[in-house]
């Protein structure tokens, strides 16, 4: 976070002010607007929730800073970014702020710092639009382009496959070509294989060597996917691991296939369609598909979950 503030955001703000593109007063005016629109980071919840919220907010801050950086790059000449950040000039260098030792203090401080950084970023973007240097639509468009893919992509694909047998068979035989038709370019995925669960087969995905995952389609994997305990135990005793960690029971007549991805092939599981989902549309079905069910360690949600909504 401090890297993005001291090397990317603040040096550029200072540069804009030096060049006279915007004034400090523009930023202060914009900051009152920005402040009213800010989503506060809640500092009263469970520590794990707070850390998760911090991660999401940091992602937003980084993507926003990238967008702001490229807008500024088109407005003023940036000769040498390291020089303007003061790397070579002690007098102009922006210091990193120090954090406390304790976890709770640290989290509170990070929340405060991140809120401040977001405020500056928002104020900067608002000031730039107020000056007419960039349009709001352009900013939104650029922000949307930086959004990472999510597992919901996979949920949509699974729901479509449940409804359309012809799509399903093409998806299982050549996933990449079939998904290209749906607009997923997958240019950085060497090969994608969709593993079809049946009455007698359950597929599970792992990458024991690192953390190979269909990132380009499903975004980032859940935290435990990269954890050594999952990687090792899902290979040595998969039935037990599924039972203990995910409360999933695999009957003895079901073959449990654990796919260890070694980079070239990325896997996604096509779970079995839950019972009593006849007549559901694609959107309802997609809402039953969880991130865990696309890795094979969980089942899709039960039909009643959607019906009770």
């Amino acid at each position: 976070m401090e890297y993005w503030r001291t090397k990317r955001l603040e040096p550029r703000v200072i540069r804009l002010i030096r060049k006279g593109t915007i004034a400090f007063s523009d930023l202060i005016k914009a900051s009152t607007v920005a402040h009213s629109r800010m989503e506060e980071l809640k500092s009263d919840g469970d520590l794990e929730d707070r850390v998760a919220a911090l991660e999401i907010a940091l992602g937003k801050f980084i993507r926003g800073t990238e967008v702001a950086t490229s807008i500024i790059g088109s407005l003023v000449l940036v000769e040498e970014s390291r020089q303007e950040a003061g790397v070579y000039d002690e007098a102009a260098k922006l210091e990193h702020r120090k954090l406390s030792e304790g976890t709770i203090d640290r989290v509170s401080e990070l929340e405060e710092m991140l809120t401040g950084n977001m405020l500056l970023l928002q104020a900067l973007l608002i000031a730039l639009t107020k000056k007419g240097l960039v349009t709001l639509e352009k900013v939104d468009e650029m922000l949307a382009a930086t959004n990472p893919p999510q597992y919901e992509n996979g949920a949509r694909i699974v729901a479509k496959a449940w409804l359309d047998p012809e799509f399903r068979s093409r998806l299982v035989s050549d996933a990449k070509a079939t998904l290209r038709e749906l607009g997923f370019a997958l240019n950085r995925t060497p090969k994608l294989v969709v593993l079809e669960d049946t009455e007698f087969v359950r597929n599970v995905i792992v990458c024991t060597l690192c953390s190979c995952y269909p990132y380009e389609l499903l975004g980032n994997p859940p935290w435990w996917y990269k954890h050594e305990s999952y990687k090792q135990e899902i290979i040595t005793s998969p039935t037990k691991k599924l039972e203990e960690m995910f409360k999933v029971t695999v009957p003895a007549n079901v073959e449990l296939r654990v796919y260890d991805s070694t980079s070239d092939i990325r896997y996604m599981v096509l779970p079995r369609r839950p019972e009593r989902t006849e007549g559901m549309n694609e959107e309802m079905l997609a809402s039953l598909v969880t991130q865990e069910s696309l890795i094979g360690v969980g089942d899709p949600l039960r039909a009643e979950i959607v019906q009770s909504k």
Partner: peptide, 9 residues
């Protein structure tokens, strides 16, 4: 056992 591991080699 019904447990199998599949590795790309």
């Amino acid at each position: 056992s019904n447990e199998k591991v599949i590795v790309d080699i």
